[in-house]
Design a protein around this nucleic acid. Structure first.
Lengths: 121, 121
DNA sequence: CTTGTGACTTGCAATTTACAAGTCATAGGT
DNA sequence: ACCTATGACTTGTAAATTGCAAGTCACAAG
């Protein structure tokens, strides 16, 4: 993805082209929380559907946010791991947690392990 | 909007229910930058369409992110102002700017006035 | 062989978005 | 009076996306 393919040079608009939907950052949350496999993402409380999950994981891989890793060969099965680039979105998640906790009483408080997440490697 | 109407108690998922689309945070950016009027939002480089703009402004008002203010009576015309709640999303915008500037060379660097935004009142 | 598992894919209805034109309440000018 | 212009939406419609549910595939196990 090069500069010429963005709707503008604005960093916010550019970011939104990748994560500006209702599901991508939910999946990113799950990745930060240690989920790796398709079936794990499916089990999250927001109940993402299989076609949206497959679509988003594919797009996240294309955008370089995650890598697929073979975890089994027969049949071939992959899990998903955050890249450095993907992990760089963690501050967004933190800002969102803080905003919602402030303005929506009753929303869960994220554990320190989540807020203090550091990408491995 | 009460707890019972969210897809989960997760603060990230909750936030995404309000701003998890390609346009809401673009409008929020414009508000932080001082835009107030419908025609001003329409002139942004991403070229939002009138129905989406009207739809999003209405939703943002309902969610308490903006207030409509009468600026003319004949005909009645309103502009839009960030609330404290809406302004509370500024750290999210900052995080997005930083992420995109890091990973997408060529994206604009936001002026200090944007990054240092403080809500009036 | 059958059944089960996990990771998708497919079909389709409902919803949303993008594009373009239209409408409305004015104000201004002739 | 008429016409034109302005700004803020609204409407019609085609295209795209989402959500629901079922299906398919490559295995493994019994």
């Amino acid at each position: 993805m090069t500069m010429g393919e963005h709707r503008s040079g604005c960093p916010i608009a550019t970011t939104l082209e990748i994560v500006g939907d209702k599901w991508t950052l939910v999946i990113l949350r799950d990745l930060v929380n240690g989920k790796r496999r398709y079936s794990e993402f499916l089990s999250s409380p927001e109940r993402i559907t299989t076609n949206i999950l497959a679509d988003r994981l594919g797009k996240m891989e294309q955008a370089g946010l995650v890598e697929r890793r073979l975890y089994q060969t027969r049949p071939r099965r992959f899990d998903y791991v955050l890249t450095r680039k993907g992990a760089g979105l963690h501050p967004l998640l933190v800002a969102m947690c803080e905003w919602a906790n402030t303005h929506y009483p009753g929303t869960w408080v994220a554990p320190e392990s989540f807020m203090d997440f550091k990408p491995a490697g």
